[in-house]
């Protein structure tokens, strides 16, 4: 490895030869032992330290954000959430085919029961002719007793 190559690698990967690509490490270690090589690495290490500094993230801030995520999960329906994050439905367990089938069966069965009940009531209850529709409407709007019997409504 030439000094120029070593210098370029140090400028790319920094002052720690052990973090350089594996295929150049052995050759780089030999150059690093020379005074010039050591000086190059020391200079790059100063920049490494500055770049490695991470912002302080308090536990409280992290917990607060985690709590807010849980809140959003609780508030937003799954379908909306997926649409919002531009996601197709995941492979999360879906309703079994039987459950899908039941979803149609239940309303159909309810309707059938209602029809059966209606038919049986119609058969069982005594048939009688009630007041005519027109008389019913009039009775609803005016006093029933005020209608003379001889009006001859249909």
């Amino acid at each position: 490895m030439t000094p120029a190559e070593f210098h370029r690698l140090a400028e790319t990967w920094g002052g720690d030869v052990e973090r350089w690509p594996e295929q150049v490490r052995a050759a780089a270690r030999a150059v690093a032992r020379t005074p010039d090589g050591a000086a190059v690495l020391a200079a790059e290490r100063r920049l490494d330290l500055v770049l490695a500094e991470a912002p302080v993230v308090t536990r409280r801030r992290a917990d607060d954000l985690a709590w807010r995520v849980m809140q959003r999960l609780a508030e937003e329906p799954a379908a909306t959430l997926m649409q919002r994050v531009g996601e197709r439905p995941s492979t999360r367990p879906r309703p079994a085919p039987l459950r899908n089938w039941l979803r149609w069966l239940l309303p159909a069965a309810s309707l059938a029961c209602s029809v059966l009940l209606g038919v049986s009531l119609a058969r069982e209850l005594p048939f009688g002719s009630g007041p005519s529709p027109a008389a019913t409407i009039i009775a609803m709007t005016i006093d029933l007793g005020a209608i003379p019997n001889d009006w001859g409504l249909p």
Binding site: A54, P55, V69, R72, L81, E87, S90, T91
Partner: peptide, 26 residues
Amino acid sequence: QRVTGNTADADDIAQEAFLRVWTRAG
């Protein structure tokens, strides 16, 4: 925070990232 250079954006992104983890875990 380091990539955006901004704390408020970082908070939004961190939340959004975990919502994606939730929706895309599969």
